[in-house]
Nucleic acid binder design. Structure first.
Lengths: 188, 188
DNA sequence: ATTACATGCAACAGGAATGTTCCAGTTACT
DNA sequence: AGTAACTGGAACATTCCTGTTGCATGTAAT
């Protein structure tokens, strides 16, 4: 987490940083132009505390993006994309990602700074996703002619759409996977 | 278009308003927090001209949303959603909408003011889309069990995804329709 | 040709947000 | 218990943006 010197932060400082990041996600999701004063109030700290922990507004946004990207990468990794059977992995990852994205919607759509940890993590996640879709195609889950780049973007878009409503992650994930594989056309 | 009194605007004023709206779309798409000064510069007019034509920043955004919504409604109407065969209409509308949304991406994702012209037009467009999908389901194009609310959101999401790359509208539309109907799964 | 409309420039006032500083009091770690 | 770290409040300076005004000049409609 955020450090000032070589030593780790005190526990209360860790709590403040976490509270600030969580408040930033909520407040900025509602209004991306919200002030640092509003974020501080929502976090239950003084604005000087926000400035103490984050050099400036951009640094706070960067920390938000990095933190959320770490959680996304963790969610994808927990779905064992490289080893579980493709359909199982896709379903599990979808449910995991829905939860993380639901909690960090704003943070995860921030364009990551070039060279940042968030950018690297997002690239890793995308690579893992493409590899999983390639395995799915090899296993006959996807059409042999499926364009994986387009398919991965459709997959992300379906996840994004599912976030717009409340629901049980597994049920929402099932619908995402069903739609990804079969669309809305007539079932044979 | 924007009026000051009962008489229509002079031709040069009409041109200014159009230039401002087009510049606003470009500049605000790149940076939603861009200043009115930046929009004015991009439009090739003075900031006082922007203030003369739009009472305030929100009025400019409202005008942008209304204008773009009218063009979207026109694009959907041109696809004859009520009378053309469903597959033809869906394809035609998709290509038309891709073009309009490509040109007014920012304006079309502005949340319209409650009671505004844009809000009414967006509601009309959504109703027309649902009716078209219902006809498609009746004709056997969609699965009898297809949830039309979800299907329409998937459809919009696929259009949104297609906007992220350059391409010929008809080819992009074909892919949207193909994905909407059949997903990425194995073709039988 | 005339007249009304359109525009740009410069200046002004006000408001909001950001980043910084200082210090007293509180908390947590050893 | 002692000490270092953490925090909040208040104030300050700066910057940027918005909205407004007045006036001279240019443009377009009749």
């Amino acid at each position: 987490m955020e450090r000032t010197t070589g030593r780790a932060l005190r526990a209360d400082a860790e709590r403040s940083v976490r509270a600030i990041l969580e408040a930033a996600e909520r407040v900025l999701a509602a209004d991306p132009a919200a002030s640092l004063e509003q974020v501080a109030t929502a976090a239950g700290v003084a604005r000087t505390t926000v400035h103490r922990r984050f050099a400036n507004r951009q640094a706070l946004l960067d920390a938000l993006a990095d933190s959320a990207a770490r959680q996304l990468a963790q969610a994808v990794g927990d779905g064992r994309p490289e080893t579980a059977p493709p359909l199982v992995a896709i379903h599990r990852i979808t449910a995991n990602v829905l939860q993380v994205k639901g909690a960090w919607t704003f943070a995860l759509q921030l364009p990551p700074e070039t060279g940042s940890e968030a950018a690297a993590l997002h690239a890793d996640v995308h690579r893992a996703c493409l590899a999983l879709l390639a395995r799915a195609r090899e296993d006959g889950l996807l059409d042999p002619g499926a364009d994986l780049e387009w398919t991965s973007r459709v997959y992300y878009a379906l996840i994004g759409e599912s976030l717009r409503e409340a629901g049980e992650p597994d049920a929402l994930a099932a619908r995402v996977v069903e739609t990804l594989l079969h669309g809305a056309g007539k079932r044979d």
